[in-house]
Nucleic acid binder design. Structure first.
Length: 620
DNA sequence: GGTGCGTTCCTTTTT
DNA sequence: GGAACGCACC
């Protein structure tokens, strides 16, 4: 490799970023590290800068690589893009950013022939859905009927143990079910189907029992990043530990115990201390909150005590004045009045120049119940607001990203980002790279341009069916088979077709309303609407102003059972806001629970507001 | 048709 | 946690 590496002492953060001392030390040091970083501390940026340091100084020695593992696909994509932006395409080829499930599945798919026959899945195994697991249990002789709770309980046991399974640690029925899922059952017309948990267990087993594979992984990755570490499950931790325990690979784990809101979904409670003990890691605490205004940070700090967290002297970004930050608690008699007031507040925010997608409405649960009236009232002010969940899921899909970019290219000239993206992805799908004959590349570009031009000509549309045909034409041009071979998940034609159908339907709604393709695509992407989502979906995001609707007992129905986790959940909502946050309570709300609301159980949040003296209480 | 009992719903990601 | 629903029973 012909390249001048940067001297370690001379390296400085890319793009003029200034890092606080603890962050800078984390970026350049060579020890296993647990980074405790609160909201807005710049976790992604820290990891991106560390990747740049390791690659640019050749500390991650060529041709070794960095492995970054996240939970969600968009988080993994985001980090990869950030690193590419900071240190360029060439170096970032040695930065692999992927999800736990992708990492595990790649190992299983690549090495499954090394598994013992008894644990080797069939070549054409599929990803098991809930009904497949139920069916497998049935074939093994256990029937749940409609009892969901019992199924959840039993289903969790299925992958609770490391392989190989024996009757010493697990009942016979589970071993039998594993076998049915691994091998399918011809008599029962049941295909080989694996859950992601099973795939992780298989990957871990492969690495633990095959020293060549273990060595290969160890040799490939000199450095590993673990994102959102507080949410790591035991299955995921077992995999990481088997790969890198007592090896030369250096791990940087980044997380925040104050944002631990996935315990109910199986996150491992002792993960921070386990990691520190197993990997003899040092611990670093970041002191910056770049996101929130000083007065909002004061409220966040006031929660540290109830979150069992040491008070630290948090620093805010210098772009803020000390008196910046607003917080309101609005108490209503009924939800109609609440919707009136909120829509007027939002209207006046927008008229002061706050961008519409810098405002977010957050609820604890059941987006539609808590937000329908507000959506209707906002519509009367000509402001769009929408349940973001379905769009979040769609927009992270590669086929949707491709369609969005293609239609934007067809509707408007001079969209270089879209062109770069489409060119890269279509090259990949067509197996074209720089090593190809220049004429082939030239022809390829010409062909793509022709297709886009062709689409452009066909955009003059009156009926939904014409749009549907046009989308089909685009998919056909690329070819479904190419999608399916590049993206595993599209091997299920139903899944793929369903995504395309949703794209057609939702984009058409927008076009029908605006008669403008650019606006329709922008609207589809959410550039002109207020997103509404649950706290869990909002994790990792930030907005100028947050409206938290429904600070009520029935939204926190599980508070008595899991007060610590719900405090964290509240903290996550609170810490999404950059400049302003409004909480609302309504005595009257049409939920499936009680229609008369109280806040007795979560009074500590109301006390907290009072104690800080920052939150302005308004009764209507 | 009243009663009592049990169940359901409510926060999630991943190829 | 707590309303709402289905069901068996008298």
């Amino acid at each position: 490799m012909n390249r001048n590496w940067v001297d370690k002492e001379e390296w400085c953060p890319a793009d003029g970023f200034r890092l606080e001392a603890e962050a800078m030390d984390t970026v350049v040091n060579d020890k296993n590290t647990l980074v405790v970083a609160g909201p807005g501390a710049g976790k992604t940026e820290l990891l991106a800068q560390r990747a740049c340091f390791l690659l640019e100084t050749n500390t991650c020695r060529y041709p070794k690589k960095i492995l970054a593992i996240s939970f969600k696909k968009d988080a993994a994509d985001n980090l990869r893009e950030r690193v590419e932006l900071r240190c360029g395409k060439e170096l970032s080829l040695r930065f692999e950013s992927k999800t736990y499930d992708a990492f595990a599945k790649e190992i299983v798919d690549r090495f499954k022939n090394s598994l013992d026959e008894s644990y080797r899945p069939l070549n054409n195994y599929k990803i098991a859905e809930t009904k497949d697991i139920k069916r497998a249990f049935e074939i093994a002789g256990l029937n749940f009927g409609e009892n969901q709770t019992e199924f959840n309980r039993v289903g969790n046991i299925l992958s609770a143990n490391i392989l190989p399974l024996s009757t010493d640690c697990i009942a016979e029925i589970f071993i039998c079910t594993w076998n049915i899922l691994l091998k399918g059952s011809r008599n029962d017309n049941f295909e080989s189907s694996l859950t992601f948990e099973m795939i992780s267990r298989l990957a871990e087993y492969l690495i633990r029992t095959n020293r060549y594979i273990k060595k290969a992984i160890e040799m490939t990755y000199s450095h590993v990043f673990l994102d959102e570490f507080q949410d790591t499950t035991s299955i995921q931790y077992d995999l990481v530990k088997t790969c890198f325990f007592q090896t030369g690979t250096i791990i940087t784990a980044v997380g925040d115990s104050k944002q631990r809101i996935m315990l109910w979904a199986g996150a491992r409670k002792s993960i921070f201390s386990d990691f520190q003990n197993d990997f003899l890691s040092q611990k670093r605490t970041l002191m910056m909150n770049h996101r929130s205004a000083p007065r909002l940070v004061e409220i966040q700090k006031a929660m540290y005590n109830s979150l069992n967290e040491d008070i630290i002297d948090l620093k805010t970004n210098e772009k803020w004045n000390q008196e910046d930050g607003e917080a309101y608690l609005r108490l209503f008699e009924d939800y109609i009045k609440e919707a009136d007031v909120l829509s007027e507040e939002i209207d006046s925010l927008i008229s002061t120049g706050i961008k519409i997608n810098e405002i977010c409405i957050i609820v604890k649960q059941m987006v539609d119940v808590y937000s329908q009236e507000i959506i209707d009232k906002l519509a009367q002010h000509n402001i769009k607001a929408r349940n973001e969940a379905v769009y979040q899921d769609l927009l992270k899909e590669d086929v949707i990203k491709i369609l969005v970019s293609l239609f934007r290219l067809a509707s408007k000239d001079g969209m270089p980002d879209d062109w770069d993206y489409i060119y890269d992805i279509l090259c990949e799908l067509d197996g074209i790279d720089e090593s190809c004959n220049p004429q082939i590349i030239k022809d390829f570009i010409r062909k793509v341009e022709l297709m886009i031009n062709d689409t452009k000509k066909k955009l003059n549309i009156t009926y939904e069916e014409q749009f549907s045909d046009l989308v089909d034409y685009t998919i056909k041009y690329i070819s479904y088979e190419k999608f399916a071979s590049k993206f595993q998940q599209y091997k299920s034609r139903d899944y793929f077709d369903n995504l395309v159908e949703q794209f057609k339907r939702l984009v058409w709604i927008e076009y029908d309303e605006t008669k403008d393709w650019i606006k329709a695509i922008d609207n589809f992407e959410g550039k002109n609407s207020i997103p509404i989502m649950t706290i869990h979906k909002s994790k990792g995001l930030e907005y100028d102003t947050i409206f938290f609707v429904g600070l009520e007992d029935s939204a926190f129905w599980n508070f008595k059972n899991q007060p610590d986790e719900d405090r964290c959940t509240f903290f996550v909502a609170l810490s999404r806001a950059k400049r302003r946050i409004d909480f609302t309570f309504s005595s009257n709300r049409p939920t499936q629970f009680s229609s008369i609301q109280k806040h007795d159980c979560i009074n500590e949040f109301y006390e907290l507001f009072k104690d800080t003296g920052i939150v302005k209480k308004i009764e209507y």
